[in-house]
């Protein structure tokens, strides 16, 4: 799956991958879905492992709010989350990133994460790198209010992990 950049067109996408880029976005797979939500934003994300999927989904959510290439990583943070299902773990992971967008005004774009399944619980530990939102220096998008459970799913297809998420705008 080639990531399709939400902003406007192929030109913007080329800009994203231009010299300002600090992250190799092509390494992650996500795609915005124009026909799933009317007033909100839907995306699908994929990865060979749950870790890759969670990374892709985080970038997809961040890409709704800001032009990712504009961000210079200056802030590091470790996030740990536990949940009973992989779906709940993804819901809480994305919700945490949206929470930090408001409380610390940081959008994270680099993720070194591991997901373990221990004693019936899924555990995520992520070292995240991001930058503080700067309306003067960053091209802003839409504020994400929340992650919805509308059509929310994770599935394993041919050994790959895929998710569909609708964000409330």
């Amino acid at each position: 799956m080639r990531p399709v950049f939400l902003w406007q067109s192929a030109e913007d996408y080329a800009y994203l991958l231009g010299e300002k880029a600090t992250v190799d976005f092509m390494a992650y797979s996500y795609n915005y879905l124009p026909d799933i939500a009317i007033a909100d934003v839907a995306f699908e994300a994929a990865g060979d492992t749950p870790e890759e999927l969670f990374r892709a989904a985080a970038l997809a959510a961040a890409g709704v709010m800001i032009r990712l290439a504009d961000i210079t990583v200056t802030v590091q943070k470790t996030i740990t989350i536990q949940a009973e299902t992989l779906e709940d773990l993804l819901y809480q992971w994305l919700s945490e990133l949206i929470y930090l967008k408001d409380v610390e005004r940081v959008i994270f774009v680099e993720f070194d994460l591991t997901i373990k399944h221990i004693a019936g619980l899924f555990e995520l530990a992520a070292d995240c790198g991001g930058g503080e939102i700067d309306p003067a220096g960053h091209e802003l998008g839409q504020d994400v209010k929340a992650v919805t459970y509308h059509l929310f799913e994770i599935k394993e297809v041919d050994g790959k992990f895929e998710a569909r998420v609708v964000l409330d705008i």
Partner: peptide, 15 residues
Amino acid sequence: GRTLSRSKAKKMVRG
């Protein structure tokens, strides 16, 4: 009431 999705609207007009 919206009729077009956000991404469709952006395809039809640039900011």
